[in-house]
Computed example of a mutant assay.
Amino acid sequence: MRVLVSGGSRGIGAAACIRIAEAAASRGERAQIAVCGLGSSEPQEEVARSVRALGGDAIALSGDLSNVDVAPSLVEAAVSEFGGLDALVANAGVASPGTICNLSVAEWDKMFEINTRGAWLLAKHCYPHLKQSRGAACFTSSMSGHIPHAGSGAYSPTKAALNMLAQTLALEWAPDGIRVNIVSPGMTRTPMSENLYADPAIKRAREDLIPLSRIGDPRDIANAIEFLISPLAGYITGQDLCVDGGFSKSILSHIPGRPSSKP
């Protein structure tokens, strides 16, 4: 399993790299993973060492996906190292709070450049290699791509656009045997959200809203990503799997006076 993982240096991306290596080893295969991240290569290299410890092979790559030249260079490096690709995990993303009308053009563009355009460019340059391997792609979106999230700046619009991008690719690539799916995390404890969950009151209040009564862990999302790019999901494409402990389906439960399943 030869996989390029963007945003692979921490959080969901790092957990996905490790889970892919574990699953490959359980199948008697050897994972080969390009761990891509932003800035210093040391966080990526740390994840790469974990992959190697599980019997896999890994390289650490760096680049800012807001630069249009980065996506093709990442793909080229991965293909040069591994001789091809079997899967793309387009996980890199950024979030920046703000109200829509107070965003600057630069802030709006930066979010779309990384969250949406960066994923498109990775897919575009991975396509010939995934066509050759009849591989798969998984895009990390968000429940915020389904439900508008006021105050999140351009984040919800970028994720909604990402969802449509992935679903369009699923149809366009199906004749080539390439599967494309989406994982939409709910509330998940990652380095990006750690400052919130360090507050016990906020953590408890959020847990109380989730039917499964806990905050997601990056490994919860990684399990879904690994499944969707694995042979077990060989007849699944164009799907958006919301991994949120049931939160996004529970909105009516929060209306005062309505029946509740909670004792």
Results as ranks from 00 to 15, higher is better:
R2M: 06
R2W: 11
V3P: 05
V3S: 03
L4F: 06
L4E: 04
S6E: 04
G11F: 04
I12Q: 08
A14P: 04
A16S: 10
I18H: 03
I18K: 06
I18D: 03
R19A: 00
A21D: 01
A25I: 10
G28W: 07
E29D: 14
R30W: 05
I33K: 03
V35C: 06
C36N: 14
G37A: 11
G37M: 07
G37S: 11
G39N: 00
S40Y: 00
V47R: 06
S50R: 14
S50H: 13
V51I: 06
R52L: 08
R52W: 11
L54R: 03
G55T: 06
D57M: 14
A58I: 04
A58P: 11
I59W: 07
A60D: 02
A60E: 02
L65D: 01
S66A: 13
S66M: 08
V68R: 13
V68Q: 12
D69G: 09
V75M: 08
E76Q: 15
L88E: 07
A92C: 04
G93R: 00
S96E: 14
T99N: 13
T99D: 12
I100L: 15
I100H: 09
C101M: 13
A106M: 11
A106E: 15
W108T: 07
K110V: 07
E113M: 14
L121E: 12
H125R: 14
Y127F: 14
P128L: 01
P128F: 08
K131G: 10
F139H: 09
F139M: 05
I147C: 11
A150M: 13
G153S: 06
S156E: 02
A160M: 08
L162V: 00
N163I: 09
A166K: 06
A166M: 03
T168I: 05
L171P: 02
L171R: 08
E172D: 13
E172C: 04
W173T: 01
I182T: 06
S184F: 04
S184W: 08
S184V: 01
M187I: 15
R189M: 14
S193T: 08
L196C: 10
L196I: 13
L196T: 12
Y197G: 04
Y197F: 15
P200T: 06
I202W: 09
I202E: 04
R206P: 00
L209F: 10
L209H: 05
P211K: 10
G216H: 03
G216S: 02
P218Q: 07
P218S: 12
I225G: 00
I225R: 01
I229D: 05
L232G: 08
I236G: 02
T237Y: 07
T237E: 03
G246H: 02
G246Q: 01
F247T: 03
K249W: 10
S250G: 12
S250E: 06
L252M: 13
S253M: 12
H254E: 05
H254N: 09
G257H: 09
R258T: 15
R258E: 12
S261Q: 11
